[in-house]
Every structure is written in C-alpha cells, then in structure tokens.
Amino acid sequence: MLYIKCPYCGYRSQNEFAYGGDATIKRPELNKEVTDKEWDNFVYLRKSPRGKHLELWHHVSGCRQWIKVLRDTNTHEIFNTYKSEDKVET
C-alpha cells in the first residue's frame, strides 16, 4: 500500500485516496471548436508510461483536495507531491 504525502495533511496511506489518472491532460476550453480527434484524445486516450508519471489523486477520506503525485509506475516510488495549482515540470 502506497504512502502518499498529501501537501495539506502529510503522509497518509493509499486507502484514503482515490486515483484520478494523468494529471497532464488539459480539458479543451468551453465554447471552443474542437475536432473529433482532439476530443477523443481528451476523453479516451491516455499514455500508460512505464516510469515517471504525473498523476492526480483525490484525498477523498481526508481533506478532499485533488493533488498531483509524481510517481514511478514501475517501482511505485513517489518522487514528490504537489498542490493542484502547482506547476510541475516533467
């Protein structure tokens, strides 16, 4: 079970969190024309990298904040965690 440092609450076990997928996905702006391909990429297509992955986790049984976690999908090592508004270079 992962041990995730919530930027608001400190270290908490994984069972307090819900996984939220790739944190680098950007929703197309509202009221803007998007092609079928762009929209499908946003809704359905995700990379599944082996290695570093910036992802969202929701501290559902805690402060209810969505946070960003930079994790190695292969080793489960967590390099760092961030608040949702933090800019992260990957």
Binding site: A18, G20, L56, H58, V60, Q65, W66, S84, E85
Partner: peptide, 17 residues
C-alpha cells in the same frame, strides 16, 4: 451522491480553479 461530489470538486480544483 459521493461520485457527484468528487466530480464537482475535480472541476472546481483542477479544470476551472
């Protein structure tokens, strides 16, 4: 109920902060 709350929080915190 629980899913909708998470859904709203996601849009407020991540998409349209």
């Amino acid at each position: 109920a629980a899913n909708v709350l998470s859904h709203l929080e996601y849009y407020l915190q991540i998409v349209w902060p």
